[in-house]
């Protein structure tokens, strides 16, 4: 199996994770989408020095991981490329913001360090929840949910097709690299002299395939709108889930539970 096929397999693994069964998988996609949006908005709205308040938000993804049965390891493995980028965002804060914030024993922690940590945590939380959404909801269902929230059909279809065509392109690339290596044994990678034609071919071939795929859709009655398989209707319990979770997020946002609990113990 070459690298491309691995990449392809990873993509399809998301589909497979999403096809599992669990209480989280069973929720209506719209409910999950709304809750994820509420969660991300809440997380982002935290004050940049409010690390303790923010850390309590970790509860939700941890619960989701537990209930959905998606391994945490898988999540970090899939996010291994984006995670460092997102985490790097706050890296310079400690340099610019040196005002002392709090003292832990004899160590003085500056505001910059706290805000760096909270930014990192924010990034991590948002990524985890987005991942969990993707891993528990098939892409089609997700698109259907977006449609139901009145996101323009064009955009949603674009999203869906991009997702599909990435697969098509990786597949073409996999076939081509295999064909190349079969005739260039012992070569590592693709020789630079072949890059031009290789890329050109890849583009043409993926375009051809995309074209055929698209005709195949047209021939089967596709016009502008996807008829999404509406896996699950939005039921009362879905409403309860959405409202309950959102209320909990708001509570965690405006009442510092960590501090309150700590206060109870100290007093």
């Amino acid at each position: 199996m070459n690298k491309m096929e691995k990449a392809l397999r990873e993509l399809s693994e998301m589909d497979e994770l999403a096809a599992h069964a669990s209480p989280v998988h069973g929720l209506c996609p719209t409910a999950k989408l709304l809750t994820a949006i509420a969660y991300i908005l809440t997380v982002v709205s935290f004050n940049k020095y409010d690390l303790s308040g923010l850390s309590v938000m970790l509860l939700y993804p941890v619960l989701l991981f537990q209930v959905s049965g998606i391994p945490v390891r898988t999540c970090f493995y899939k996010l291994r490329i984006v995670l460092p980028l997102v985490m790097a965002v706050g890296l310079f804060n400690p340099i610019f913001d040196r005002a002392p914030m709090l003292t832990l024993g004899t160590v003085v922690v500056s505001g910059g360090v706290v805000s760096m940590l909270s930014l990192m945590l924010k990034g991590l939380l948002c990524l985890m929840v987005s991942f969990l959404l993707m891993a528990t909801t098939p892409i089609d269902a997700l698109c259907a949910a977006l449609r139901r929230l009145h996101v323009p059909g064009m955009l949603v279809t674009l999203l869906l097709l991009t997702y599909r065509y990435v697969g098509v392109m990786t597949e073409e690339l996999a076939v081509m690299t295999d064909a190349y290596h079969l005739r260039a044994p012992g070569q590592k990678g693709i020789h630079i002299s072949a890059w031009g034609s290789f890329l050109g071919q890849l583009l043409l071939r993926s375009m051809d395939r995309a074209q055929e795929l698209y005709s195949s859709m047209l021939l089967r009655g596709y016009h502008e709108h996807f008829h999404y398989v509406d896996f699950k209707p939005f039921t009362f319990s879905d409403g309860l889930y959405t409202v309950g979770c959102t209320a909990a997020f708001l509570l965690l946002r405006f009442v510092n539970v960590a501090q309150a609990l700590g206060g109870l113990i100290v007093r």
Partner: peptide, 23 residues
Amino acid sequence: LQNSDNQMFMPTVYEDMIFAPLN
């Protein structure tokens, strides 16, 4: 189609089969 790879564009066989009737 001559090439079935280009005909099937949904993740599973089932989803591909319901595509046209639903449309």
